[in-house]
Design a protein around this nucleic acid. Structure first.
Lengths: 211, 211
DNA sequence: CCTGTTTGGATAGCATGGCTATCCATTAGC
DNA sequence: GCTAATGGATAGCCATGCTATCCAAACAGG
């Protein structure tokens, strides 16, 4: 498959495909001559993944590249690879360390995770991400206590355990495992977000008796 | 309070505050003279809300403006105001109508919402947002059926009903109601998202027996 | 074999979004 | 009265995600 076919089948313009190649999101095709390269179905698949993460997941290109680099680093054990890919999905960690509120929130998060019995490395940037959200809630005058957070943690664990991690093919090729994880995380994340807004609208209609 | 104090207390630089004023995110202060305006605690509050939506919620400025316009349009009944604000939180609706997959997904969404007995206007852009996510999942080779979606809908409704809409002060001033709704939706949305990733990491560690 | 089209690769440019910098007349406050 | 701050306006900056233009090599049809 040449670049024009790749473009036609994916709906992504050729210059954009070239951009993704430059940015390392898409591996180079197999060079058959100086001005000829062959692309396969894996490229088409990758291209669709990129577009999904960009458009539905709203991930920046740099984050997608980090995900892809984790896949392509063959030395990483699978759990580490999934972790690396996973962390790339989060917000970029801001290095504003000297903040008492943040430290306190971080401790709340650590205690919460320990209390839940979850196995999460203490280094996970996700912990700080949650801490930052808690600080923001507090500053907006809606501090979140354990009682507020636990239902969210419980729902998250139920979904992750019953419907997400159980469908990851850990025994297959590594790139399929990451791809599935990333799709589950990002796309079902969006699905959940939209359902939540739909549920809120429905509740609002019920409470306010509107049409 | 003058602009310099507003800046000092909020941590937002003065030129940025002026930018928000220009963009209509922040109402003008009370003019006390040609080159003097007085800002109150409501401005500080609004400023914190803007930053939260921008930084934690990653909403574009245009979306924030739509939320704020809904609040300030006194003619809107409360449910409509909440709806308008709510829709601004979603992705901008893309007008690519001629797509069979999308129409089919949209119908799936409509049936799903009807089946759940939720009260959501047929015009809600949220429906299309969900439909688009379903199309993307299908194109990535992971089509989502009713069985895949229902747990997400159930979790969303449980959270919305038990922990979100019940805390909205519908009887208070309208801007407080919207503000609370927006904060609940956006910030707890982020909290839920992060919890889900933490839960996934924990499950991955459990399954793969990693540290 | 010749000619027009396509390809890969490189470089530069563009549009949008979210600020940031500069200027200037006015005026509070000493 | 003098100085520094203020409000208002205009223009510029930077990052991101593309898009446009070139160019030499090479394939394909005649």
């Amino acid at each position: 498959m040449r670049i024009s076919q790749l473009s036609a089948e994916s709906g992504v313009p050729i210059p954009t495909i070239k951009y993704y190649l430059r940015e390392g999101l898409l591996p180079a095709g197999e060079q058959t001559a100086a001005t000829r390269a062959e692309y396969g179905p894996s490229h088409l698949r990758r291209l669709r993944l990129i577009r999904a993460l960009l458009e539905v997941g709203r991930l920046p290109v740099a984050a997608i590249r980090r995900v892809i680099e984790a896949v392509e680093d063959e030395d990483l054990p699978v759990h580490t690879m999934l972790g690396t890919a996973h962390y790339a999905l989060g917000a970029a960690p801001e290095p504003d360390a000297g903040d008492d509120d943040l430290r306190e929130a971080r401790q709340t998060v650590d205690e919460l995770i320990a209390g839940l019995g979850w196995t999460v490395t203490p280094l996970a940037p996700t912990r700080d991400e949650l801490a930052r959200a808690l600080v923001t809630l507090k500053r907006l005058g809606m501090p979140a206590g354990q009682a507020d957070l636990l239902p969210y943690a419980a729902s998250a664990m139920r979904l992750a355990h019953d419907h997400e991690m159980s469908r990851i093919p850990f025994d297959g090729p590594r790139e399929v495992a990451v791809e599935t994880l990333v799709i589950c995380t990002v796309l079902y994340g969006r699905v959940l977000d939209v359902f939540r807004r739909l549920a809120q609208e429905s509740e609002s209609a019920r409470i306010l008796g509107a049409t």
